[in-house]
């Protein structure tokens, strides 16, 4: 049976909850050959996974991410519960190699236009640089030029309204 990042994270979650020695367990699973394609070399060290589970990744601890409000997972392309530079790396991979699933695509569709493209990278970059404070359906960028020739880029956004997505995923359940 195929192991995925999700099954590994689930195991790590249980390990943390049961106060086992989770880092070793997680490392063992992560170092499994089958996981080679899931955890690429330029991603975080496996040692940090448990800490993320315990401290940050409440999405695993609670409902699966697809059950959380959209505002809590859009842009979290790396699926670790936080939006940071790793998501930019992962998004670049998706652009080059394509997305693996529909949910995968939803996470990567940062601007919510139904497609994964370069505009998603632009928006994610702006978010990481603090130029916008959230992902919207469409952020509008307006460039103005003062009389002295200084260009100013104004990004207009509205906060994303959370849209809860509950229920079983689109399988057969």
């Amino acid at each position: 049976m195929k192991k995925t990042k999700k099954t590994v994270m689930t195991a790590a979650l249980f390990a943390a909850a049961m106060n086992l020695v989770p880092s070793g367990a997680v490392e063992a699973v992560v170092s499994n050959d089958d996981m080679g394609t899931v955890f690429a070399a330029d991603e975080p060290d496996s040692e940090s996974v448990v800490g993320e589970v315990e401290n940050d990744f409440q999405g695993v601890y609670g409902p699966p991410w697809m059950m959380l409000p959209e505002s809590q997972w859009r842009g979290d392309v790396y699926e670790d519960g936080v939006i940071d530079a790793y998501d930019m790396v992962e998004l670049r991979k998706k652009l080059l190699n394509g997305t693996e699933s529909d949910w995968d695509a939803k996470r990567a569709d940062v601007n919510g236009d139904g497609e994964v493209g370069i505009s998603d990278m632009v928006m994610l970059q702006k978010y990481l640089m603090g130029q916008i404070d959230g992902f919207t359906e469409k952020a509008e960028t307006q460039t103005t030029e003062s009389t002295s020739g200084i260009k100013t880029e104004i990004v207009t956004t509205t906060k994303t309204v959370p849209v809860p997505v509950y229920g079983p995923p689109s399988m057969f359940d």
Binding site: A11, F14, A15, V29, P63, M66, M67, P168, P169, D173
Partner: peptide, 29 residues
């Protein structure tokens, strides 16, 4: 699932606090 296997229960039935969210990736609905 503790062992990291892709094994899951189906969508049916409320399972109580002990097993909800532990034998499948979502809560009963």
């Amino acid at each position: 699932r503790i062992a990291g296997e892709p094994v899951t229960y189906g969508c049916s039935h409320y399972l109580g606090m002990e097993y909800e969210r532990e034998v499948r990736d979502w809560y009963y609905l």
